[in-house]
Nucleic acid binder design. Structure first.
Lengths: 110, 110
DNA sequence: GTATGATGCCTACCTTTTCTAGGTATCGCG
DNA sequence: CGCGATACCTAGAAAAGGTAGGCATCATAC
């Protein structure tokens, strides 16, 4: 019943992924943790959402991937923002701001 | 090419409709105009989105509808918020605020 | 007078995105 | 040895919006 972790709205996941990667190279599993932690546990990205999204995003050229071994000795697929991806992040942040503003305006109405 | 009206994010339409109706009884076509106007032309709800949404929302009991003639002499289907609908609006506004906050937190990160 | 655009309603179908619910494998710890 | 965390993936369902049509009425312009 009590659900303290809201589902994402469609369209926000890409932005979150790109933002997480803008803080540095990261693998998929780590993105989920980083997003959850940065949002104070409010945003919980499901694996079944993330991996398909990463695939889409990679196809679009916004991130590049490579397999590597990290300090713990485990293999993981590391993603990095491309230049295009960084631009896309800016675009999506601007759209987000626009939308938040627009909705705020509607909500101000009396 | 230049697209100055962004698509809505999924999940925001119900809130916008409920909000528009919280300002007073209204028919479908009028909601589109009211939302567009209140948002300074930023939010454009398509008819193909609105009418199915109204149907869903009515099924959930958040609005009630009746046919009537308005001052211009034309017939239209007027929708009104129910008590449940008003509660739902509060809930959705709270979720929205939560989401905006959570995303803001992620974006603050350095 | 008739064409056109705005008002007003509706539907069928498509697309996109996310979630659910599985599957696989490795690693560390009790 | 089992179990939870780490790490990847996929298939299928569900939900929401958009596109693109259709219909009818009304006012205005030509």
């Amino acid at each position: 019943m009590a659900k303290d972790k809201a589902d994402l709205l469609q369209g926000t996941l890409d932005m979150l992924i790109l933002k997480a990667l803008s803080l540095g190279e990261l693998h998929g599993y780590g993105m989920i943790q980083r997003i959850r932690q940065l949002s104070d546990e409010m945003l919980n990205v499901e694996q079944g959402s993330l991996y398909p999204a990463l695939y889409r995003i990679e196809q679009k050229g916004w991130v590049s991937a490579r397999w590597d071994v990290h300090e713990t000795g485990r293999e993981a697929k590391f993603y990095k923002l491309t230049r295009t991806g960084r631009k896309q992040l800016e675009t999506e942040e601007a759209s987000w701001d626009r939308l938040v503003l627009a909705i705020a305006k509607v909500r101000q109405a009396t």
